[in-house]
Computed example of a mutant assay.
Amino acid sequence: MSPFALTRTLPADATAAALRTDVSAGLTAEPKWLPPKWFYDARGSELFEEITRLPEYYPTRTEREILAVRAQEIAAAIDARTLVELGSGSSEKTRLLLDALPKLQAYVPVDVSASALELAGHALLAERPELSVHALVADFQQVLALPDTPGPRLLVFLGGTIGNLLPDERAHFLASVRSLLAPGDALLLGTDLVKYEQTLVAAYDDAAGVTAEFNKNVLSVLNRELGADFHPADFDHVARWNPEHEWIEMRLRARAALTAKIPALDLAVSFEAGEEVRTEVSAKFRRAGVSAELAAAGLTLRHWWTDSADRFALSLATLQGAPTP
């Protein structure tokens, strides 16, 4: 394998087609919704990076804390020669794992953004020229075909991103992950934990208003990509805790009755005053729930690591029936 390779499994027009499908389905539903993945254009990614540095937003730094403290234990639990990262982005936190895996030969970052993969991949190769980087342009919620790399493989899904999936979507995702694993492989999963409501809501409704701008950015994406005429100032950012489902919901609430036109879909979307569109769910977890969801997908929870304040967890799982690492 060459030091850097990039494989595209998404057709060139896949993103545009998915956006049209999601917006058409979500904004004609009752109640209205949009998937959170459409936050992340260039501006949205910049805003999220800013969010990760806010005092209220603990998940990024607490997960990094766990990795910094436990990377050697994780490496000892699985002698990985390949690291596969789903939703890799900048691969920043992953460097803590790469440094801890002495026998690592290949890194397989998976992301929908080819430019992000190329940037991160070449940066890693500048630091680790001995590493083979096989970047995969793909949607981790779709069926993946991983490159032929040496095992054992450690598949990582960090950032608590699994919480953005609804329960049925999580079940489907974990089943697809299980299909990628062979005996000796493992899944390292990052999950945000249930905690005080005040702490959770503050993390998604910061005092500086950065998350509000991030939430409203999805409207700018629709304006640019679909010719829509949304005015972000017509909507308020809402973050609320749903105790029944134990997740945070981010919503956009119309300040007054309005109609937005989306020419690319030949669609006009009407909002009543106070009507909301859900833009994100961010589920929070407990150890028993994580273990049960893994088990339902044919995986066994082997290790559980949290930060010093039990705000976030990393769990290591292997195939059911596989020897304990």
Results as ranks from 00 to 15, higher is better:
Asp192Ala: 08
Pro232Ser: 15
Leu188Trp: 11
Leu193Asn: 05
Ala203Asp: 08
Ala203Met: 00
Asn223Ile: 07
Leu193Pro: 00
Pro183His: 07
Ser220Ala: 14
Thr199Ser: 13
Thr199Tyr: 00
His231Glu: 14
Leu193Trp: 00
Thr211Arg: 04
Pro183Glu: 13
Leu219Cys: 09
Thr191His: 06
Ala208Asp: 12
Leu189Thr: 08
Asn223Pro: 00
His237Thr: 08
Ala212Asp: 09
Ala212Gln: 05
Leu219Ala: 09
Glu225Met: 12
Gly209Trp: 10
Ala203Pro: 02
Gly227Asp: 13
Leu222Thr: 03
Leu219His: 07
Gln198Arg: 14
Asn223Thr: 00
Ala207His: 12
Tyr196Gly: 14
Thr191Met: 12
Thr191Arg: 04
Asp206Thr: 10
Leu200Cys: 07
Leu226Phe: 13
Leu222Ile: 15
Val194Tyr: 02
Leu187His: 06
Ala212Met: 08
His237Arg: 09
Thr191Ile: 14
Ser220Arg: 15
His237Ala: 09
Glu197Gly: 08
Asn215Met: 05
Thr199Glu: 13
Glu213Gly: 06
Thr199Ala: 14
Val194Met: 10
Phe230Glu: 04
Ala186Met: 07
Asp206Val: 06
Leu222His: 02
Ala202Leu: 03
Glu225Trp: 11
Glu197His: 03
Glu225Gln: 15
Leu200His: 05
Ala233Asp: 14
Leu189Ser: 12
Asp192Tyr: 08
Val201Ser: 04
Asp185Glu: 09
Tyr204Glu: 00
Leu193Phe: 09
Leu188Thr: 09
Ser220Thr: 15
Gly190Trp: 07
Ser220Met: 13
Leu200Gly: 03
Thr191Phe: 04
His231Cys: 09
Gly184Phe: 03
Phe235Asn: 04
Ala202Tyr: 00
Phe214Ile: 01
Leu189Met: 13
Ala233Ser: 14
Ala212Leu: 07
Val194Ser: 07
Arg224Trp: 08
Leu222Asp: 00
Val194Gly: 02
Val221Gln: 04
Lys195Gly: 08
